[in-house]
């Protein structure tokens, strides 16, 4: 270590810049969760649907994305999305699409387990009342499935929040990358990384605490 040891002044000076990065991280997380949840639910319904082709296609999709490292997925999407759309779009949009497509595979599995956790009798009862398949899903199965799944969904959201750190590979200024830029330009890698670790830890622990509260709440009901 060069003499002089740790100097955390630089951290305080760069709070506005870091806050901007954190804003991007949070935005990416929220939009990623929202998009992933919608697309994931669609995938889960497709996987459980009584049509072979559809459930096979959805299953292939899920297995494909679950076997790829996120870092490669981000890379591929960053380069291929502009080609598919036929026009260049920003790094943020490409990465967001990558996260939605990737997380959907995981949300699909969570949703599937959630739908299967609803007792079969409930679905039969819905059918007996004369509900169609979509109605049955919409009014009977999904509301219960969502409730059962909330703690796991929030846990996955925390994982996604941490995963957004990977966008550094395409040079998008999220929280970690912003910290990295400052660390590099000021030559203070140690201080910045320790700060980053503490911030992530605090936010994720808070999230985990909320999960535990939710679990307790649902256990009591």
């Amino acid at each position: 270590m060069e003499s002089g040891g740790f100097d955390f002044h630089i951290v305080f000076h760069s709070i506005p810049f870091l806050a901007k990065g954190m804003g991007l991280t949070l935005l990416l997380t929220v939009l990623g969760i929202a998009g992933g949840l919608v697309f994931g639910t669609v995938l889960a319904l497709a996987r459980l649907a009584p049509f072979k082709v559809l459930s096979f296609a959805a299953g292939t999709y899920v297995n494909f994305f679950r076997s790829m490292p996120l870092i490669l997925v981000i890379f591929w999407f960053y380069f291929l999305v502009p080609l598919v759309l036929g026009q260049e779009i920003g790094a943020f949009q490409s990465v967001l699409i990558a996260f939605i497509m990737f997380e959907a595979a995981y949300y699909c599995e969570i949703m599937r387990a959630g739908i299967q956790s609803v007792r079969v009798g409930q679905a039969y009862a819905g059918e007996a009342l004369g509900l169609t398949y979509p109605q049955n899903m919409r009014y009977v199965v999904l509301p219960q499935a969502f409730r059962n799944m909330i703690p796991i969904l929030v846990s996955q959201a925390i994982v996604l929040f941490q995963d957004t750190a990977l966008v550094y590979v395409v040079g998008l200024s999220d929280f970690l990358y912003s910290a990295d830029i400052i660390a590099n330009s000021e030559n203070r890698l140690m201080e910045m990384y320790i700060t980053v670790a503490i911030v992530y830890f605090a936010l994720c622990s808070w999230g985990q605490f909320q999960v535990r509260n939710l679990q307790k709440k649902f256990a009591h009901e």
Partner: peptide
């Protein structure tokens, strides 16, 4: 970055 420069030139 050094990892994205080539691909971004190639994909226009």
């Amino acid at each position: 970055t050094s990892q994205t420069r080539l691909a971004l030139i190639a994909n226009g």
